[in-house]
């Protein structure tokens, strides 16, 4: 029996979400009195792999095959499902990111394993196996009973505390089958934005809405983001107007994020916007309208015009950084 954690790597590197997943899987394994096994697909250096051990994986498996060049959801499912069976995994843990969303449903069918998607805490009980997840875009939560013998969970990003454990871990390479003829997805082009903090990975996000009045006024938002090491985001009207790129749209139909700190600047806080950001640990709102719904979701607020408040805020931060 085991808990199998699928840990994606990005060109052989892991990031915070990887360690979050392993921390979660290790705690779950502890609850189940079993081992946490981390699985990654494709070459990763030993030093990098050892990090997974630090967060509680007792065994680290690296699935390798020279044919693996593209993320093909069918073949990846075959590789992960094969290892899950070999390792007698009772629970599989994946991230609820793009990759996890592509794989978990296929694995659920392949392994006849009930799926709890987007969980943000450990199961409330193991028998019955009860998980808790956000529904109605954060306006409610649901308690879900997973009835199958094998279970799959996808973990919301930035929802679980990292925890290091001093346990020893072993690393093993596993040669896996890869059906080249069965690869139905071929990459034609890759467009990457280098050197930018990803919105979904960011601890702090500075987001602007229609209250910013025009795209020329974004300067202080970008400045604030640079000072705080934050990512920039925006509300839907702003991306619809083309003031900012679509990738920055946070909200129900855009990106759903859960940073430690979210600045909503000139954003009124409609239900659809809150659906994308309500899991943030702290929300700061700056808005001219004291009755704006964003203040009901925020811990800290400033009633005022962003155009006047932001330069002062930037100045105060610069002063602090200067010290």
């Amino acid at each position: 029996m085991s808990v199998l954690i699928f840990v994606e790597n990005w060109d052989g590197k892991f990031k915070k979400l990887s360690f979050e997943l392993v921390s979660y899987g290790a705690k779950l394994a502890e609850m189940m009195a079993t081992d946490a096994i981390a699985l990654t697909i494709g070459k990763v250096e030993n030093g990098e792999l050892a990090k997974l051990g630090r967060y509680g994986a007792s065994k680290i498996l690296v699935a390798v095959n020279e044919g693996i060049t593209t993320f093909d959801s069918m073949n990846f499912t075959t590789v992960i499902a094969g290892i899950a069976v070999q390792e007698d995994a009772k629970v599989l843990v994946l991230s609820n990111n793009n990759t996890g969303k592509a794989l978990a449903p296929r694995l659920s069918v392949r392994l006849k394993a009930g799926l709890g998607s987007g969980v943000n805490r450990l199961p409330a009980s193991l028998d019955p196996f009860m998980v808790y997840k956000k529904v109605y875009s954060g306006n409610a939560y649901a308690n879900i009973h997973i009835k199958t013998d094998v279970k799959i969970l996808t973990l919301s990003q930035n929802s679980f505390e990292l925890s290091e454990s001093g346990n020893n871990s072993t690393v093993a390479e596993v040669a896996v089958e890869w059906d080249n003829a069965g690869v139905k997805t071929k990459v034609v082009e890759v467009q990457k934005q280098e050197g930018k903090i990803l919105l979904t990975d960011a601890d702090i996000v500075i987001s602007g809405g229609r209250g910013m009045k025009s795209p020329e006024n974004w300067g202080p938002i970008v400045q604030l983001a640079e000072l705080l090491g934050a990512a920039t985001a925006c509300s839907r009207p702003v991306s619809d107007e083309g003031w900012r790129p679509h990738e920055e749209h946070t909200g129900q139909t855009g990106k759903i994020i859960a940073p430690n700190l979210y600045f909503a600047i000139g954003i009124s806080g409609a239900t659809q916007h809150l659906a994308g950001v309500s899991s943030s640990k702290f929300i700061v709102a700056i808005n001219t309208d004291k009755d704006a719904p964003i203040f009901a979701a925020a811990q800290y607020g400033i009633i005022g015009d962003a155009g006047k408040v932001l330069p002062k805020l930037v100045e105060a931060l610069q002063e602090l950084k200067g010290k």
Binding site: S108, K112, A113, G114, L115, G116, M130, Y132, V135, G138, N139, A140, Y141, A142, N143, I144, H145, I146, K147, T148, S278, A285, F295, A296, A297, A298, Q299, Y300, G301, I302, I303
Partner: peptide, 20 residues
């Protein structure tokens, strides 16, 4: 089915906003 939705819960109300 693989899963049953047993019950719903409402989110806990957030503490009042502190104004600066």
């Amino acid at each position: 089915s693989f899963t049953d939705l047993v019950s719903f819960e409402m989110p806990k109300p957030r503490a009042a906003c502190k104004f600066v």
